[in-house]
Design a protein around this nucleic acid. Sequence first.
RNA 1: GGGGCUGUAGCUCAGUUUGGUUAGAGUGCCGGUCUGUCACACCGGAGGCCGCGGGUUCAAGUCCCGUCAGCCCCGCCA
Length: 584
Amino acid sequence: MRTHRAGALRAEHIGAQVRLGGWIHRRRDLGGLIFLDLRDRDGIVQVSVGPDWTPSDVIESVLEVTTESVILVRGKVVGRPQEARNPEMATGDVEVHADAIQVVGPAHLEALPIPVWRTKGEDPPSEELRLLHRHLDLRRPELQRNLALRHRLLQRTRATLTDLDFYEVETPILTKPTPEGARDYLVPSRVHRGQFYALPQSPQLYKQLLMVAGFDRYFQVARCFRDEDLRADRQPEFTQIDLEASFVSPEDVYGVLETLFVALWEEAGFAVSAPFRRLPFDEAMERYGTDKPDLRFGLELEDVSELVRGFRAFEQILSEGGRVRGIRVPGGAVLTRKDVDALTELARHAGLGGLATLKHQDGKLSGPLSKIDGMSAGAARLEDGDLLVATAGPDSLTSVVLDRVRRAVIARLALVPTQEHGFAWVYDFPLFEWDRESQSWLVAHHPFTAPHPDDVERLLQGDRSAVRALHYDLVYNGHELGSGSIRITDSEVQLLVLDLLGISQQEAERRFGFLLRALRAGAPPHGGFAVGFDRVVMLLAGADNLRDVIAFPKTTAARALFEDAPTELDPAELSELALKVDNA
RNA sequence: GGGGCUGUAGCUCAGUUUGGUUAGAGUGCCGGUCUGUCACACCGGAGGCCGCGGGUUCAAGUCCCGUCAGCCCCGCCA
């Protein structure tokens, strides 16, 4: 049907007889001359319809056809007159003089509630309409580009990991519910009335079994499902590049992923180099207040306890051995009262008393902290125009607040990053976390993460507080791109960790018996990683929302508007599954 | 589960602060003129359940209550 794609035509095609197929993006009817912008996957080319080269019956038919209709065009590629070239179009040096046009897919006005074409600067249609008419939204060149990039990144992933000796293996979608972690999406069994499968939150246990089975290196483009509330960067079903390797240390895993990420960034047109920075968890929390710091900026957190000694609001916390931590913000004096109030509200919301500030402007100090006896710009190390923000409380709270303050200040002052690509490995995470709500120790990541060898002794003594895990996250510009760990391969250690989580041996055998049996059958040391692929595509596409890199995403209420899911079932269907719905 | 923002013409938005004449603009759509446009230009026209339900009022797009939907955030996401 076609000889070329419309968007692929260039000066080198001048003189060629071509047949094209595509959508009418725009039309400009000058009376005696009609221009059609013909759009396909590769872009847009101008089709020119004029009496000197187009039969009159074809001109007649063009007058009838609506935008977004699908047409087949036969014609000749010609160079445009010099003054009529369009340097803003990839195809702008040429146009197609049509001698035949066939409307093969007419578009009806009532089927086009949202426009594909937009004027410059016009806001896109509402998210609701875009999702409801997704087939139209996806026609937009921007989303076509995003999904094309996604395709290339996927293929590059497959090629890179295949080069590194990884096998791509598929694992089940219908699997076993897991009480820990996120809520499962459940699937009722028809054959086994009253029993349920779960959709996988990740292929974690399967990939460990593949290592026990001797596949040595595995990866998968794995769809994962978690029934939790959404965010701009979180969808209920999402794609992980899941991988696992045998006989590896954390450094071996870092090496594989650095090769992969350098390749992916190159695919998107960015040169980055490995190795990435290494940052222990404790250091990340101390210097940035978060385990996923944006390393493109300075603005590190500091202990300013000594500097602010004598400030009444902090006295009690300091006398109880607590700390005052703060951030020096170069140029922060331009922040308005309103800005500072918003930051203070952040702190209050998190459960701290508030924020205290010290401003150095026009040679004078101001702000609550300026009232401390003997305070000076020199002592506070503030240049003229700088601002110090400080707060007191437990580290767990000041970290959270100062991380948010740091990010808010970076955004508000539109600071210039010191580097473009801030990759880092964060490692030495704690194995357990104290959960205030349940007043119990929970596993920080998943219960198959190996403890740090240096901390196993403490673990054996039942001390959960200071045990590090062989767990690592890959962080990029303040985003977590993925995480992984070395796994437990000793069934006794596995039982111990489960025991420390309050899972008895009997219960462990019942729930994870298949894993324990596998570990006892000759398990190689192994570890791996899972990349949040959607988020990677989002960042590389420059999108600010996951929905713009997923063909058919869900709304924040986890609905699919286009196909209208989820949906109610007929009583007969429920009955076959032995289900009763209680909507009360 | 909680908080915030938004909902007015097919689409994108004004109008809501301070209730008051016939609810506007751009774009799209329809009709007309136009042979070098590319946000074509120009002339004319049609198009409204102001998300939905209730209330206050002489009077509601505008105030109050509820509800639905979309988006953003907190909780949640081993």
